[in-house]
Amino acid sequence: MLTAGDEYPIHQTPEPIAYSGSDRNFYDRYFYNGYSADGSVFFAAAMGVYPHLNVIDASFSVLRNGKQSSLYFSRPLNMERMDTFVGGFSVEVVEPLKRIRLQVKETEGIAFDAEFTGRSFPIEEPRFTRRQGPRMLMDLTRMTQNGRWSGTLKIDGEEIQLDPASWTGTRDRSWGVRPIGAPDAQPLIPPLDPQFYWIWTPTNFPNLSLYFHVNDDAKGDAWNKRSVLVMDGAKQGERLHLDEAQMKVTYAPGTRRMAKATLNVKDGQGNPHAVHFEPIGTFLMKGIGYGHAKFRHGMSHGDQLVVEREDMDPNAAWNIPENLHIQEIVRARHEGPGGLASEGIGVFEQLFMGPHGPSGFKSILDGAA
């Protein structure tokens, strides 16, 4: 089947763009977040294309005044990957790798129309490849970019202007293989208890962006990690790799939620730097489909467009599996040699499931001592 994408020089296999190899879990995804300078208003959005499930879905969620409000959209893909819209939700590439327009036409009291402009060229994170026994769990590439927002957010009669002087955030694009849609009915042999330890902290400072992420195994050994600094206006490859990056997390007693954290790194000259993170608000990632009981990414909802709003308490119990994956909105303070210091804002994304030796976690959901 030929589609609009076949008009562009973007083929990755000998087949038409409608097909993406043979793995049913192949996906292609947009993610966005944005926040006011004081962190009092936060939003996130996502759109996923699942070629072999023939589904496209999207979501938009706003956190403010202690309440999180989400919209979920889903429809058949009809094998056309270039139609980046679901109901009133759409993504438009205005300038590749630089400017994106995100729109949500007014739907159940929520509307959004804004442009994201990258502060520098996106970074490419190391390829994520992880197996569970013989089965591929993840095999994907992701690019990440901090930027500024300009536009309008409307929710339940209130209109909020997004001024690029004060509204920042992060977007990413990822594609490859990860668990999507209905889970595999065939169990692993032998069965394995779930384990995933993930931290991702894109942070906006006044004239630069800090990126750090880590995936640890049960022993605490990192199987994917990187930390870089990128100055505003930097071109591809113009980034400073930070060495010996270690994130020390202090958990709220009896939970797996971060109470505070410090990233220790060294620059190219061996000078030590520390970045301290303090949470100021919790955003549930199920609000944009991650682990959601009904609107999990890639789930089929029939042969017609489905749209639904859901309001949720962001401070709901942490130890419910669908509440494990969160983004904490964080204040960040950088302290460097010679009294160097600066203040920033960003997110501390966490998904802590199963054992993790350095944290003292021994089972799937035990809390910190």
Rank of each mutant, 00 (worst) to 15 (best):
Y32R: 08
D172H: 06
G270K: 12
L242R: 03
Y197V: 14
K154P: 04
M312W: 10
H273L: 08
P9N: 10
G367K: 04
D139K: 11
N25K: 12
S227N: 00
S74A: 07
Y27A: 08
G88K: 03
R131S: 11
D184P: 03
A341F: 13
F60C: 03
V177Q: 01
A317R: 13
R331Y: 09
I288D: 00
L210I: 14
D23R: 10
A18T: 07
L71C: 05
D267R: 03
I280L: 08
G151N: 11
V249M: 03
I189Y: 09
V91I: 13
R99T: 15
S300H: 08
T117E: 05
G39R: 03
A165V: 13
I329S: 00
A245W: 02
G88F: 07
N315M: 14
G48W: 06
H276E: 08
L71E: 01
Y50A: 02
F85L: 02
R101E: 05
D216E: 07
A252S: 04
I189S: 06
R131T: 12
N215P: 09
A45N: 05
D303Q: 15
T84A: 04
Y50E: 05
H213N: 03
F121H: 05
Y32M: 12
F283I: 08
L365E: 02
N65R: 06
G181M: 14
P190V: 15
G268S: 06
G338Q: 05
S300C: 11
H334M: 09
A234N: 02
K235I: 14
Y211Q: 09
E322F: 07
S74T: 14
V104M: 02
D38T: 15
R256A: 04
S69H: 06
D172V: 12
P122R: 01
L263S: 00
P183K: 00
P355H: 06
I160H: 04
E343K: 15
R148I: 15
V93K: 00
R101I: 15
T152K: 06
A114V: 15
A368M: 03
N319K: 10
Y197R: 09
E124G: 10
Y30C: 05
H273W: 11
D313F: 04
L77V: 12
Y50C: 04
L140T: 13
G357I: 13
T250E: 00
L284T: 03
L137V: 11
K235L: 14
H276S: 08
F196Y: 11
K266V: 11
Q68D: 01
